[in-house]
């Protein structure tokens, strides 16, 4: 008994037309069935373009289409929605020839992906200084358990592309990607409906990675080590830094 699905499935996935006659009558069904294959490839490409707009912008249409086709072949969608398609695209991209001379593309992809994951992440109400004061004054004391928002993302970068990424996302053209390795980190978080992002110093990266992994501000604080003893408001103390975390909407009262 022939498989009523395999012929069309093989054609959509791989362009193999041999089995189409098992599904469709009439001569040369592949001439029309190409609609389905093109639709599949287009849907995947549009999902990748929506997730990685900076990468698409830097690569240009022709190169991005080529890369998307290769990625779709290597890693077809597994979930029955494309809103998260391409989660492993940055890792895959890092193995491709096109990024050997341009490793910053991989970092752009990581930043694009983190931005979208943060946008689509969990909605949470961050602790405000007013709430903190009320808690303390009502005798509730200092919240014992504080953590980062679940929508926060700490992204490790191989090249210093954060500023370039910001420029691209703001619609500026003609930006050049750095080609020399310069490791760093960026942080994404969403206190309300707008995603915020910034670069992190080395100690801050350790601070946030620890905070995210342990949900413990005490453990994260062990990494508190500002490289500059002073900023415009005087020395950066742990207390001041804590106030900035609240101001930025980066603290959630844990369960």
């Amino acid at each position: 008994m022939h498989d009523p699905y395999r012929g069309l499935g093989d054609f959509v996935l791989n362009g193999q037309a041999d089995g189409l006659h098992q599904v469709f009558s009439g001569p040369q069904p592949e001439q029309v069935a190409i609609l389905y294959r093109n639709g599949y490839l287009r849907a995947c490409r549009e999902a990748l373009q929506a997730r990685f707009p900076a990468v698409a912008s830097v690569m240009g249409d022709v190169e991005f289409r080529k890369v998307c086709s290769a990625y779709v072949q290597a890693s077809p969608p597994r979930q029955r929605t494309l809103t998260r398609y391409g989660v492993d695209f940055p890792d895959w991209l890092s193995t491709e020839d096109c990024t050997q001379a341009n490793p910053g593309l991989v970092d752009l992809a990581r930043l694009d992906g983190a931005w979208l994951d943060c946008l689509f992440g969990l909605d949470e109400s961050p602790l405000t200084s007013l709430q903190l004061n009320q808690l303390i004054q009502s005798g509730g004391g200092f919240p014992v358990s504080l953590r980062l928002p679940r929508n926060a993302r700490v992204v490790a970068l191989g090249c210093s592309v954060f500023d370039v990424w910001m420029s691209i996302r703001q619609g500026e053209g003609g930006v050049a990607l750095p080609t020399q390795p310069e490791p760093g980190h960026a942080l994404f978080w969403r206190p309300d409906m707008t995603v915020f992002s910034r670069q992190l110093d080395a100690w801050e990266a350790r601070f946030y990675l620890s905070f995210q992994a342990t949900d413990s501000l005490d453990e994260a604080a062990e990494h508190f080590l500002p490289a500059t003893a002073n900023d415009r408001d005087g020395p950066i103390t742990l207390e001041k830094y804590f106030a900035r975390l609240i101001e930025s909407g980066l603290l959630i009262v844990g369960d």
Partner: peptide, 22 residues
Amino acid sequence: VWSSIDQTYLAELLPLPRTQPV
């Protein structure tokens, strides 16, 4: 319609052969 085979999502509304097994 159908749109998934071998755990791969084909992101298309593919026609069904109108047979008893289907």
